[in-house]
Each structure stands twice: as structure tokens, then as C-alpha cells.
Amino acid sequence: MATDSSMVDPLAEGEPAPPVAAPGDRRRLSKWRLYSRRFARNRPAVAGVVIFVLLVAFALLGPLFARYDHVELDFLALSDPPSPEHWFGTNNAGNDLYAMVVVGLQRSLLIAVVVATGTTILSAVIGTAAAYFGGRVERVSLFVIHFLMVAPTFLLLAMMSNDSGGDWRVIALVLILVSWFFQARTIWTLSLSLREREFVHAARYMGVPGMRIVLRHLIPNIGSLLVINFTLGVVGAVMAETGLSFLGFGVKLPDVSLGSLIGIGSSSISSAPWMFYFPAAALTLLTVSMALVADGLRDALDPTSAAGGRA
């Protein structure tokens, strides 16, 4: 059989004998060093981090290099292809596409991060609290969760954000409202077993108040799941926001996001394809890089996973 231990699944092929360290030079790995080492071994995940950091840098530093503002109109260059003057070309009104992509990326990133943070916090608190307190709290939260699962959330989302007139804060809030409950349900299932553990009983008999147990003892124990949920939440939020904006229900002019840019670009896709290329490339890089990071994190944080290699 193969002996290259990095490529062998120890579960399937039997554990190769662990390298015996001399008793003197055995060091303890801290949790975070272990995680980062496992993560760094996953090359696609590292590539995802690099792409994501570059995109964030582009969104933050891009305006420094922009020659035009995203609402500024250049009437001498209508629907121009990319040129030294306008790096990404212009649209039919003379807006500089480079400036618009930078602003759109900022907007999409901001919405995504806000939504992912809000969703993670809300689902963690509600899921664990429902499991820990039980009784009426549990029944009410589960009823709400199940009701939202049947409710036509995308419809609500479209109606509410259409009504908001394109304010990104309202869109972010509505996105949080319609996306927390799936995660909350998963967390509730996990926390059911967690609440029977000794350290929770110990804390309870010591008289620690309930909400404090939830925040200090239960939530840290599902920390790795929350980290993964957060990264996947960013992907989901970006996709939902761009879908809404593409249809015209989300961010509205003069504010732009990647979705609304693609929506504008799609109407002139055969005559001015660059209006589609650049926002689409930014959007795809954003979602794919975050998904690679989430995948790497899952392998790195999961103690039973063999995909990251040993240790």
C-alpha cells in the first residue's frame, strides 16, 4: 500500500505508526497553532484567503487610484470599452466602471459581513438558549423557526427590501431576519446534548445564572461551528443580495452593488460585455474564495477530519 502518509486516509487504510518523538523535545501545540497549521496545509483554502484579502484590499484601497467618482458622468466617453482613461470602460451614461465596481464591491462586502455577523449571533443565542432553558422558551422559539421555514421568505425579502427604497441597512436587516433560523435549528439540535454535559450541570449547581451559562459555557463550545457558519453566511448573503439587486429589488441607483451592476450589464451584454465581465469576476472571486475558506476551516476545526493530514 501507499506509504506517503499525507495522501492516505488513516480511517480507511489503518493508522500509520505515529512518529515517535524523543521524550525531551515533545512540545504541546496550542489549539490555535494546531488549527492554523492544519489550515495552512490546505492549499485551496490558503488561496481562498489570499484572494479574499486581495479583494478586500481592492475595495478599501481602490478609491485611491480611481480617477473618477462613481456618480460622475463623462459625456465624452459613453459606452467606451476599457481604455487607459477608463480602466474598466464606461456605461451608456458615462459612469466610470472601475469606480462603480469598487463602490459596488464595498457595498456587497459590507452587507455580507453585517448579515453574516448578525445571523451568526442571533442563531447562536436563540438556538442555545432554546436548548438550555427548555420549556416555554424552547416551544416558542421552535414554533417561530418552523413557521419561518414554511413561510415564503424570498417573497417577504423581495417585498420588504423593495419597499425600503434601496437602503442597504434595511436590506441587511431583512436578510438577517430571513436567514437566521436554519442555523438556529442546527445549533439547537447540537446544544441539546451539550446541556446534559457535566460542566453545564456544575455551573448550574454553582448558581450561575442561566443566560450567563448560555453565553459563557454553551456558545464557546460550538465556536468552531459558528466560525464555519459565518464564512458560509458571507457566501449566502452575497448571493442573496446580488440576486435581489439584480432583479431590481435590492440596492438601487445611485447606490450600486455588484448585483445591480451585473443587472445593468446584462441589458447590454452583447454590445458592451465589459459591463458584465468586471463585476461578475469580482463577485465570483468573492463567493468562491469565501467557500474555499469555509471548506478549509471545516477541515481544520473538525477533530475527526482526515482531509487536513495528521495533527
Binding site: 492516505v8 485551496p44 463567493t287 474555499l292
Partner: peptide, 29 residues
């Protein structure tokens, strides 16, 4: 964990996360 698996998984994780808008319009082009 052989080459075929890694290639297939790598492709899938990318295609899964291409937004449908981009995929559809790319196909149109």
C-alpha cells in the same frame, strides 16, 4: 484523495459557488 477525486471536488466547489446570475449570463455570452 486520488487525483480524480481532488480534481472533481475542486471543480465542484468552484461551480457550486458561482452565482447563478454570473453562470447564466456567461453561458449567454
Amino acid at each position: 484523495y486520488r487525483l480524480g477525486d481532488r480534481v472533481a471536488q475542486g471543480t465542484s466547489i468552484i461551480t457550486m459557488n458561482i452565482p447563478i446570475v454570473v453562470a447564466a449570463l456567461g453561458l449567454v455570452l
